[in-house]
Amino acid sequence: MKRLMLLALLFSASFAALAQQKKNKSLSGNPVFPGWYADPEGIIFGKNYWIYPTYSAPYNQQVFMDAFSSPDLVNWTKHPRIIDTTAIKWAKRAMWAPAIVEKAGKYFLFFGANDIQNDQEVGGIGVAVADKPSGPFKDHLGKPLIDRFINGAQPIDQFVFKDKDGQYYMIYGGWRHCNIAKLNDDFTGFVPFPDGTTFKEITPKGYVEGPFMFMRNGKYYFMWSEGGWTGPNYSVAYAVSDSPFGPFERVDKILKQDPKVATGAGHHSVIQAPGKDQWYIVYHRRPLTETDGNHRETCIDRMEFDENGLIKPVQITFEGVKAQPLR
């Protein structure tokens, strides 16, 4: 009996120590949460950071999405199955690369599904809506928002960018082509540009997939992934312009593998600390021990600029980032 009591006390003390250690955790570590997850969309809603990734598995198993929230970039909470193919009747597999925005108290989740290879297949880019960032999300249209190839762009890897005038744009595309289109007010379709076109191609040199855009000091930074997603040389490059429509001249590659840390670092997003010139890049990479293309992990590292506003090469780390609580 005494031995059992002693074991119980030791277990209790160990548990308390682990709990305190977790409570006092000051670095995120990389990956920031366990499991195979890729294509992360990082964003801030209220007093929490959120990450919406692809569940990284064979296409026929990619039938749902999880989300993760954190008050400080260090301690993350999993929100399982915020959406799945039971809510999106036209989607059957390959639910990819979510993007999310909040508008008028509603949360709109954009995603690719089915990995269509031509205009005769059902699939493309869809949109779902929920009352909370944790879902559950339901189909906003009952069909894809974009279901065909336009300007050579496979309808995948969508990012929704809110411009300084409040206008929302969708920037998307695989197969080495990227389009931009103006979303309508309720995200059910698109508004033509003054010249009558609806989709404008803005593909920069080297573009493969995974577009992302943000603004800093009045400039538009357009970022994308290069290389093959299953290979070690997957990476992120960028361009800068005075307009969301470009022209975008490739500046440099800023995120790539480190043979001492991980390979296949790419398909990213960017988070700015509120009110600060402090930036984080959220991306996926493949551990050095893994050869399976789907074995990808979500990581966060600092992203910094030089005195000319150019992005410095990102050092990928095991440590991750320091706690940055939202107030």
Rank of each mutant, 00 (worst) to 15 (best):
F137W: 03
A94W: 11
S243G: 02
N179P: 04
E41L: 01
L73W: 10
D84N: 11
T77F: 06
W50L: 05
L10F: 14
I125C: 01
M1F: 12
A153S: 12
T203E: 12
A91D: 02
M215Q: 15
K253P: 07
N233A: 12
I202E: 08
D66Y: 09
E297G: 00
K25T: 03
V314C: 01
Q324K: 15
Y221R: 08
V240Y: 01
W90Q: 04
I100W: 00
F15L: 15
T197P: 00
L6H: 13
F245V: 04
Y220R: 03
P204E: 08
I254C: 00
A19T: 10
A323E: 13
V314I: 08
Q117G: 01
F68R: 07
K260M: 08
G210D: 06
M95W: 04
D163L: 02
W175P: 07
V240Q: 02
Y37D: 00
N48G: 03
F33I: 11
E201N: 15
Q167P: 06
I44W: 09
N60G: 11
V261Q: 02
E121D: 12
G112D: 08
T298W: 03
M223N: 04
G135L: 02
A262D: 00
N114V: 03
F199D: 09
I88V: 15
I281W: 05
S235Q: 09
I44E: 01
K260P: 06
F199P: 02
V74M: 05
S243I: 12
A237G: 14
N75F: 03
G196C: 05
N294E: 11
N294D: 11
F193M: 04
F45G: 03
K322G: 14
A67F: 06
W90C: 13
H177D: 01
K89T: 14
M215S: 09
P194K: 09
